[in-house]
Design a protein around this nucleic acid. Structure first.
Lengths: 191, 191
DNA sequence: CTGACACTAGACAGATCTGTCTGTTAGCGT
DNA sequence: ACGCTAACAGACAGATCTGTCTAGTGTCAG
């Protein structure tokens, strides 16, 4: 009855199930059988749609990247001021970290349990590079003297906020990181 | 022939092998057989010394905690000034991050691939609490107006430096985090 | 109606993993 | 010399995991 999907394909159902299970319990911990059981789908559908488990993991991470991109960019549309847009990245993180199922960065988590080469590494560094690019662009728009240097500072804070929000629970670290980021941004603009 | 250990016990050999493999490849990825093979030890010795794999994981994390504690405290003995001792925590991290095999925080990594309850959670939060306590004590000695508040800021930077050093390779993030920490500490002392 | 296609259900092979058990060997204190 | 303990080698059971394969079902275009 839904407008977008009156009947979801097996691929969509698999991706949704994989997203929940992989993020909540880990890529390596969750087996194929758990995924197809939650998706209500036959095992052959998984291998026909994604080739193998690595393909499913890649699709899971790509989906996470796209979702994150849309979430952040959608959030930044609220603001006009470039400085506020730059700092808004931390608001988006705080919002995510406040939700119950928050478990930190899906890319880092997947990398912690897989071999350093391969699929996870690729998707992870793509996601990380996108974040840096976004920050650098916004820093430049805001008029920072050295956008790249400011970005490196903000990345440290963003990573720390992500880890802290996961380990300690709740958005406190993200809000604290935004406060520090505010002083750094203002210092970089007041040159 | 070595002065310290003419013949290492099976327990020591197992712990050393587990430390290398678990940290490099992940707690869940590395199987029992890999550990005993690297240790050059019989499987029964593992189960006699640690009970089960969880026991080995716990011992691995406890060893990591103790090693980290000694490394940091040893480093801090170089300094007399409490302010420098507080900031020296970041120097210790930078030193670790510069070494080739650095893979970030063993506790976070182990938590990313195991179920949130159980052994990993316990050891991880113990290690995290110790770090907070150390920072708070040093901040108080240094004369910070609000040691707890400063600690929360430094934890964010420390976490971010750890993640960044792992993901990007090398101690750059740790050094960058120390620079930010320096301004925060000085601001907290100049009240 | 018919054939192509996507999907389902589930058996199966082969690998791997944890944990147990048997039997043997070597050192060490008494 | 004797017995205790630690350790060895490795087979084994039982579970689980990935990936393949067979056979059947429903849907839709032409």
């Amino acid at each position: 009855m839904s407008v977008t999907s009156p009947r979801r394909s097996a691929r969509e159902k698999l991706l949704a199930a994989a997203d929940e299970l992989f993020y909540a319990e880990g890529v390596h911990t969750v087996g194929i059988d758990r995924v197809i059981e939650r998706a209500g789908v036959a095992k052959a559908s998984l291998y026909s749609a994604f080739g193998n488990k690595d393909g499913l993991v890649r699709a899971y991470l790509q989906g996470r990247h796209e979702e994150r991109r849309n979430r952040i960019l959608g959030r930044l549309e609220r603001y006009d001021d470039p400085r506020e847009r730059l700092l808004g990245i931390f608001d988006s993180l705080a919002e995510s970290a406040a939700k119950p199922g928050f478990r930190g960065c899906a890319f880092y988590n997947a990398g912690a349990e897989s071999d350093p080469n391969g699929v996870v590494r690729e998707e992870s560094s793509a996601n990380r590079a996108w974040t840096r690019q976004l920050m650098t662009d916004l820093a430049r728009e805001a008029g920072a003297a050295d956008p790249a240097a400011l970005t490196e500072q903000l990345v440290i804070l963003y990573d720390g906020a992500t880890v802290g929000s996961r380990q300690d629970g709740g958005p406190a670290a993200a809000l604290g990181a935004k406060a520090i980021a505010t002083t750094l941004v203002d210092a970089a603009l007041a040159r």
